[in-house]
């Protein structure tokens, strides 16, 4: 990504649509990849992707460079946008947010998970019960109490599993060759 997000955002703040296009070209595939994984539906993921860049257009000053890289911030916005939309769609349809059985099954869009999806490979290094709560929190936006209700587990148990899983992921990202 050669585009300098700071300069592009400055131009976006002045209403420069070409700067938004350049930013989109640099980051859209990352945003769409995440949105697809959360939404599980191409047309909804496309709407989410558009929403994310519209947010950047409307609020170009929201990213604070002192708090981290632009791509990190943008992917955080993308995840919240997608999860919020998923929950809104569930509310709309009167169905609950789907749980994650499909995460164990490879999909057509992802022919070789071990090769292409490094996130899935990383999550598989967690104990199943930790992976489950992390996936539900990360891709479905469930909170502690919602996790406890969805999984029919005590609140303390899901809190412990989520915390332990996130701590382990952090350690694995710092030291990818760690073995449990």
């Amino acid at each position: 990504m050669s585009a300098d997000p700071t300069a592009l955002l400055r131009r976006i703040a002045q209403g420069d649509e070409r700067a938004l296009e350049a930013l989109y070209d640099a980051y859209a595939s990352r945003v769409y990849g995440l949105a697809l994984r959360v939404m599980g539906d191409e047309s909804l993921a496309q709407e989410v992707t558009q929403d994310v860049f519209l947010k950047v257009w409307q609020r170009p000053h929201t990213w604070n460079p002192e708090r981290g890289q632009f791509s990190s911030w943008l992917l955080t916005v993308a995840r919240y946008t997608a999860v919020d939309r998923l929950r809104a769609e569930a509310l709309r349809s009167g169905r609950s947010v789907p749980l994650l059985d499909e995460f164990d099954a490879p999909t057509d869009a992802d022919p070789d998970p071990a090769e292409h999806d490094r996130l899935r490979a990383l999550l598989r290094r967690l104990p199943d019960e930790q992976r489950q709560v992390i996936e539900l929190a990360y891709f479905r936006g469930l909170t502690h109490s919602e996790l406890a209700a969805a999984l029919n587990l005590p609140l303390g148990t899901v809190k412990t599993r989520l915390r332990a899983g996130l701590q382990k992921l952090r350690a694995l990202l710092i030291n990818p060759n760690d073995h449990e």
Binding site: R30, L36, W73, L75, A78, D110, D117, L122
Partner: peptide, 14 residues
Amino acid sequence: LNAELAALLPPVAP
């Protein structure tokens, strides 16, 4: 960490 996890997902061109 959360952003790094997202960055591990395969990019898909919309």
